[in-house]
Design a protein around this nucleic acid. Structure first.
Lengths: 337, 337
DNA sequence: ATGAAAGCGCTAACAC
DNA sequence: GTGTTAGCGCTTTCAT
C-alpha cells in the first residue's frame, strides 16, 4: 500500500501542530475558522483519511463485529448475514465472517480468531457438532458481548435471537392435519440443538391437540438432503407409510418429495409435505413446497441490533440480564399440501 | 471488554522489561532459557494474547482482506466466499465482507470502507449497475492489491479470476444442438458485463459451427427469475417458438422451465433448457436442470490465492503485469435436455 | 487559539 | 542476556 497521508503531513505543510490539525478536523470549537478551513481544504486535497488502526488502538475498539456461522452456503444463513450486514453498515460497523463449517474444532479456533482480531462483539450460531460451550464461555468471561442466533443454548448467560420454532412447527403440523393427514412423520434435527427440540415439541403438541397419538417410530433424525432422501425411502416403503411429512428444513422436505416421486407416489395426492425455512428452493421445487418462513433477514437484523445495543451500553452495564428475542414465523402454503 | 493482559503486565510481575518479554514470547535466541520459560508460563497462566491492533499499527498491515460482492444470498457467490474464506483461514487472514446489493452507490461506499479499514488487499466482483470504475481505480492508485473475480473488466490494471464463460456457453449450446435443437434462444446478462459478452459469444460461435444462423430476435436480456419468466412467456407464445434455451444462469433457466410447464409444454420433449452455475436449485428443479458448472468454490480459492501471492510479493514488485486466471467450466447433463 | 507531551501495545535498533 | 528508547497515527490533557 502506498504511504497514506497522515495528520502529521498536514501539520507540517501548514506549519501547525498535529493536535491543532486533529482538532480542526473534528470541528473543535477552540480552533479558529481560518485554520479549520485551511486544514480541511488541504486534507481534502491530499485525500487524507484517518487511520482507523491508530484509532482502534487508542480507543481499544475496532467498530467491527465478528460473525461465527456454520456455513454461508445455505440460504437461511446467507439471508441472516444479509440482515446483519445491513444493520452493521448503517451503524458504521464492519463484519468479519468466520465459518465453522459445522466443525467444533474449527469453531473453537474461530472464537480465538475473534479475540485476536479484537472485535467489539460477536454474533454466533454454533455448529451441529458442538456439545461443549466453554469456548463461548471464554468470550463471555472476557466480557465481549455475544449474541447467539438460531442455534442457541440456554445454559450460557447471553442474548439470544431465535425464530419461533415451536409455533412454526405447530402451524405446519396443524396444517397437515387440517388437510386430512392422520399419520404424520417428522424429519428432525439433532435434539441437542434447541431448534431440534422446539420443532419436535411443536409437532408433538399439534398432534396432541387433534388427539393423534404420538408415535416415536414416525420421528427420524434427518436434516440434510441425503439423509432425508434415504430415510424417506425407508419410511415410504412401509406398508403403512405416513401421509403427512413435516421436515425440519426445506432441503429435507424436498428430498422427501423427490423420493416420493421416485417411488411413484404423488404429492400432494398421496403424501403431503411441509418444510421449514422458506428458501428459494422451496419455490422452485415441484410441486412448490409449503413451508414455514423463518424470516432469516429479520432474524439477522434483530441479532445485530441487539448486539449494537449492548455495545452502546457497555460502560453503564450493571447486572446483566440476557434478552431472548423470538421472531414469529409464518406458514407459506403452496402446492405440496 | 475486560482489560486484556498486556506484555507490560507480564514484564511488571516478572521484574523484566517489556522488550525482554516481547523477545521471549517469540523465541528470540538472545533470551536465556530460564526467562523464556518463565515468561511463557506466566503468559499462558494469565491468558495473554497479543494485541493485534497494536501490531497492525506497527506493521501497517492488518492481515485482513476486504471482499466486495453483489449479494451473498446467491448460491454462486456464497460458494465463492466459501472458497475465499478457506484460503484466507489457512493463511491466517480474516475476511471483511461488504455487500453492494447490486447498487453502484453502495459499492462506492464499500471501496471507501475497505480503505478506512486498512485491509491489506481487496477481492471484488462488481455490481450490475456499475459503469464507472474510478472508485476501483482509486484503490489501485493507492497501490492496494485488488483481484477481480467473476464480474471483471479489462480496462483496469488488475488481476482477474473468471470462469471460462465462453467455453461454458459453447458447450451448453453445442449440447442443445446435438440434442436436436435447431432454433435456440439465449437469455443473456447485460452486455457491459464480461460474462454477458462471453456467454453470448460462446452461444454465437456454437451456432456458427453448426451452420445455424444467428438470429438477434432469439437473444433476450433476462438474467433474473422474474424477468426470465416474463420473457419466456412472450417467446413461448410465438408460433415459431425456439426449442432450445440457453440461459445465462440457473434461476433464469428454471424460470423458463416453470413458464413452459405453465403453458402446457413439456421439458425436455417440447423444449430443452440449459442453465449456467450448477446451483443447488439446478438439482432440485423438475426436471433436473442441465447446466454449466462454474466451480464457484475453486474460483474463490484461486482469487484469494492470487491476492495473497500479491500481498507476499508486495515489496519487490517492479513492473506490474496483471494476471488473468480462467477456471474451466464443465457441462453437467441432467434431464432438462 | 495553539503547542508539547504522554499514551494506546508492541517491536527493534541501539546501548551496555 | 537484558534494558532504554523511539515510533507506528491519533487524541487529549495540560500548559501557555
Amino acid at each position: 500500500m502506498k504511504r497514506q497521508i497522515t495528520i502529521k503531513d498536514i501539520a507540517l505543510k501548514l506549519g501547525l501542530s498535529t493536535s491543532t490539525v486533529s482538532r480542526a478536523l473534528k470541528d473543535h470549537p477552540d480552533i479558529s475558522p481560518k485554520t479549520r478551513a485551511a486544514v480541511k481544504e488541504l486534507a481534502a486535497l491530499l485525500g487524507y483519511r484517518p487511520n482507523r488502526i491508530a484509532l482502534n488502538l487508542r480507543n481499544n475498539s475496532t467498530s467491527t463485529i465478528g460473525l461465527i456461522i456454520p456455513e454461508i452456503e445455505h440460504y437461511f444463513f446467507s439471508a441472516i448475514i444479509n440482515g446483519i450486514e445491513e444493520v452493521a453498515y448503517k451503524n458504521d460497523y464492519s463484519v468479519m465472517v468466520f465459518q465453522s463449517n459445522e466443525s467444533y474444532k474449527r469453531e473453537v479456533i474461530n472464537t480465538q480468531a475473534v479475540l485476536t482480531n479484537r472485535v467489539d462483539g460477536v454474533l454466533v450460531s454454533f455448529s451441529k457438532e458442538t456439545n461443549d460451550f466453554s469456548h463461548f464461555q471464554k468470550l463471555i468471561d472476557n466480557e465481549i458481548p455475544v449474541v447467539f442466533f438460531d442455534r442457541v443454548i440456554d445454559e450460557l448467560q447471553a442474548d439470544q435471537v431465535v425464530a419461533d420454532d415451536y409455533q412454526g412447527a405447530f402451524l405446519a403440523v396443524n396444517h397437515l392435519i387440517e388437510k386430512g393427514c392422520k399419520r404424520i412423520a417428522h424429519f428432525a434435527a439433532p435434539q441437542h440443538l434447541a431448534i431440534g427440540k422446539s420443532r419436535l415439541s411443536g409437532y408433538h403438541d399439534a398432534l396432541l391437540k387433534h388427539n393423534i397419538p404420538f408415535d416415536q417410530s414416525l420421528v427420524v433424525l434427518a436434516d440434510t438432503f441425503d439423509s432425508a432422501r434415504k430415510s424417506a425411502h425407508d419410511i415410504l416403503r412401509r406398508a403403512d407409510y405416513p401421509t403427512g411429512f413435516f421436515a425440519v428444513n426445506d432441503m429435507a422436505a424436498i428430498a422427501i418429495i423427490k423420493e416420493a416421486k421416485h417411488l411413484g407416489l404423488h404429492v400432494p395426492e398421496d403424501i403431503k409435505v411441509v418444510g421449514f425455512e422458506n428458501s428459494k428452493s422451496a419455490a422452485i421445487s415441484e410441486p412448490e413446497l409449503t413451508t414455514v418462513d423463518q424470516f432469516g433477514f429479520e432474524l439477522g437484523r434483530e441479532a445485530c441490533q441487539l448486539l449494537l445495543k449492548r455495545l452502546k451500553n457497555e460502560e453503564n452495564e450493571t447486572s446483566f440480564k440476557p434478552i431472548k428475542k423470538v421472531i414469529k414465523t409464518r406458514l407459506v402454503v403452496r402446492s405440496s399440501t
